[in-house]
């Protein structure tokens, strides 16, 4: 069966209209995987998630591997900025100095003061905003098993799920990010 150009155009128009109709009733969705547990890598997923929530984008963060520390009540106030292999720091630190005892604490302190100077919210504040604005936060079950982390150690309102459950959510997402 052959289709004329006119018929083809007509079909495309119908499909496009139907697509728009289906999409209009649905919120945009963002799925982020947070896999790092250093202070500098805790900011991007939380900042993006909080901003998404403020933009009416449905958002969830899957905290896996070291990223689980970001939602660990006992650890997330003490996330450290790496002093080693971090050449992008505003004050570059040679690795041979960065490896000395106490340098990680110093890099962390410096980073916190830079952030505070321009009024960037703290990790705790960003997590509170996320919880208040409906960002879904999910702890990785497998990571919890590996690290021996209990659900009670995670901040309130966090769900626990595995890779398949998260991928099912992410499959419907318009934006997917791995941090």
């Amino acid at each position: 069966m052959s289709v004329t150009e006119q018929e083809k155009k007509y079909i495309e128009e119908i499909v496009e209209a139907k697509f728009k109709e289906l999409m209009s009733g649905r919120k945009r969705r963002m799925a982020i995987i947070a896999s790092k547990g250093t202070l500098d890598m805790a900011y991007p997923p939380l900042i993006l998630a909080d901003t998404a929530a403020a933009m009416d984008i449905e958002c969830s963060i899957f905290f896996t591997f070291y990223g689980l520390d970001i939602i660990n009540k006992n650890k997330n106030k003490n996330l450290q900025g790496p002093s080693l292999a971090n050449p992008a720091m505003p004050v570059p630190m040679p690795n041979i100095i960065g490896a000395l005892p106490g340098m990680t604490a110093m890099a962390t302190m410096m980073m916190k003061s830079w952030m505070a100077k321009v009024n960037v919210p703290s990790i705790t504040e960003l997590l509170n905003i996320a919880a208040e604005t409906g960002v879904k936060m999910i702890g990785c079950q497998m990571t919890m098993d590996v690290m021996g982390t209990k659900k009670e150690e995670l901040i309130d309102g966090v769900e626990v799920a595995g890779a398949a459950a998260y991928l099912e959510y992410a499959a419907e997402a318009d934006i997917t990010l791995f941090v």
Binding site: I47, D50, T51, A54, N119, V120, I129, T133
Partner: peptide
């Protein structure tokens, strides 16, 4: 004023 990204957007909503 004096607030950095993304705080102005978070407060606007």
């Amino acid at each position: 004023r004096k607030l950095s990204c993304p705080v102005p957007e978070l407060k606007t909503k």
